[in-house]
Design a protein around this nucleic acid. Sequence first.
RNA 1: GGCGAUAUCGUCUAGUGGUCUAGGACGCUGGCCUCUCACGCCGGUAACAUGGAUUCGAAUUCCAUUAUCGCUACCA
Length: 486
Amino acid sequence: MAQDKPVRVRFAPSPTGYLHVGGARTAIYNYFFAKATGGTFYLRIEDTDRKRYNEEALKDLMRDLKWLGLQWDEGPGCEGGCGPYFQSERLDIYHREIQKLLDSGDAYYCFCTEERLQEVRAAQEKAGVSVTGYDRHCRNISREEAEARIAAGEKAVIRFKVPETGVTEFDDMIRGHIEYQNELLDDLVLIKRDGYPTYHFASVVDDHLMGTTHVLRGDEWISSTPKHMLLYKAFGWEPPKWVHLPVILDKNGGKLSKRKGAASVGDFRDLGYLPETLVNYLALLGWNPGDDREVMTVKEMVDCFTLERINPKSASFDEKKLQWMNGQHIHQCDDEFLAGFMMEGLKAKGINVDGEPKERIAEIVKLLKPRAHFMQDLADQSVYFFVAPATYDEKGKSKQWGPGSKEIASAVRNALANVETFTTPNIEKAFMDLTVSRGCKLGDLVGAVRLAVSGVTAGPGLWELFEVVGKEETLRRIDVALPMMG
RNA sequence: GGCGAUAUCGUCUAGUGGUCUAGGACGCUGGCCUCUCACGCCGGUAACAUGGAUUCGAAUUCCAUUAUCGCUACCA
């Protein structure tokens, strides 16, 4: 399947809401495909619905795409030769192009009102006819009459004159050959009453004019593709290659929606996922590299990306696996980056870490890194290295601070007090010696003091933990907790 | 209703007529490691939607059925 011309693909969102992970994945595949083939990835804003336009959504959209690392080669902010990249700024182009269709007789003015359309629809429903849609009431109004009526102030839309017979077929790169009977298609609106183009018209005109070679879009567009094919034909343009992507469903096979949980890129960022994780996971949801690799960098994925390995089946989003993958990516982050993220998190909690030695921060990151599943785990779990616990885990209290624990904790405290150089090996030795002299197990010694020093029952190895907290502070925290023990 | 797409473990997937008593990953689970929790390592669990047809042979091809999703807007 040789590419005769350089690949040009686009992500063409409508700025009506947040960037849904499904949309994000469409953007990812477009981006991967462009990068894998040395082509161009451009961003086009489909803002032809003035009622649903949302300025905030547009800003978020671009921010989230950038956060994911999907920087466009052309588009808002980096104009290329095919702008403008906002459809709302291309109205003159659509009006110029529609004239061609009007001239050739492939499009016509339609004066039907919303009310009449509704009546037609209702009647069709009642009659139970199989073919529904616009009844082509205005199809045969002459151009002269139509223009006269418009000149007289009547409002109209412009519809496409779809052939009444025949078959329209196209090949989808991941689904193969698809055919539609033209008689099932209705005369879709091309230019709306407000003068704006519909999606169908604008996307066809733009994909052609902007040189799109492959259209990668959600599979909800499959049924519209024959209409788009017919438009290309009417214009005499060569259609792009079609690549309809499967959708992403939630755990239960329903739509992934905000109401049911996280659904947008921003949601997952707030939850503590790395962009690398999200891109990796989303890419693997419906595509595979051809081998067993799963945790991959963008470069690794781009290097082996092909459209042929995209699955036609829609996939359920599994947040458990996402979590696991985030842990994997956190393990691969360099410590310095994690340290920066951790310190910001601590600052946000009101903990001043400015004076902390770099080595100490690095040591903490080293201890916490293999335990982190979310980025905020770093800050959340490191608080006790900087501030003594104000409260203690309730379950831990009843389990670790029961009868006899005070005596054990005191013994540990005294043993620790005698450790001159408070380092991990020395601390460990103190504990070991204590098990010998007391004739007990290590497990008997650690629970109570871990809770006393950290406030929680889970965490890094105790010796390391104590070393980083420091001798004086460790002893002090044990002293504070001693009276609470039984 | 009509049209279309899809159909392998709970989930993501490998698999393109024999090497499949179906492989990997997440999850769940047993164990190892061990001062806790993680990490890591070893093992287990679990699937070709159904019915026909083609074929010496089908998860793989074809046809039905079923189920799910999508479209059926002057929304994208």
